[in-house]
Nucleic acid binder design. Sequence first.
DNA 1: TATATTATTGGCGTTATGACCAAGTATGTC
DNA 2: GACATACTTGGTCATAACGCCAATAATATA
Lengths: 104, 104
Amino acid sequence: MLKSLAHPSRLLIIEMLEEAPRCVGELTEAIGADITTVSKHLAVLKRAGLVRDEKHGTYSEYTLVCDCVSHMIDCIEGGMGSGDAGPMKGETVPRRKKACKASR
Amino acid sequence: MLKSLAHPSRLLIIEMLEEAPRCVGELTEAIGADITTVSKHLAVLKRAGLVRDEKHGTYSEYTLVCDCVSHMIDCIEGGMGSGDAGPMKGETVPRRKKACKASR
DNA sequence: TATATTATTGGCGTTATGACCAAGTATGTC
DNA sequence: GACATACTTGGTCATAACGCCAATAATATA
């Protein structure tokens, strides 16, 4: 589970899902990576039991499974304060691409 | 920081340090890996600001930097309950070797 | 039915991680 | 000084993770 959180894009996904459910396109736009990459990140989070997906037409709406995830993140962020060690090494910053429409 | 926690051996180290400060040999014995491997794990945790080391003679005593780490772990374990997704793939189980003496 | 939209899956190259061995450092002891 | 103990560092290899492309669902719409 920790492994699934240990990636900046996936952490961002979780944080976005704290606000509201999102479809893959929205998350992709925010992350600025290829949609296939984001889809795979979501699969990882799903396998870890952190998110759930629900199909609406051609869209996949992703949601946090429960508040405990949210609490956990708060706990981590609050607990460590400024303890961000930064990127550990060649942290990938995906090249930004065109945004998709992503409105349902 | 999350990355540094996202490894079973390092998580075990953190849990052991919650109980008491430990030297590398003790941790190595508990983990069952090569001492060089454990030393490097400790270096990772140190770089992430989770542990601190203090030299006592030939021993290096490792300690948690603060309780917040401990709290965070509790928060994670409590929060997710049985949400352990298990090893994500070829999770390395290091081959066990002779234990060192490790008593100071 | 043809086409567009949204997302997933498989494959591939690149990079990072992890485990061990060998060698080196630092300290304590004979 | 010689040796033992405790640990760290550098190197190498195997494996895992990541990111993108191509191809493939699945659904909606003209």
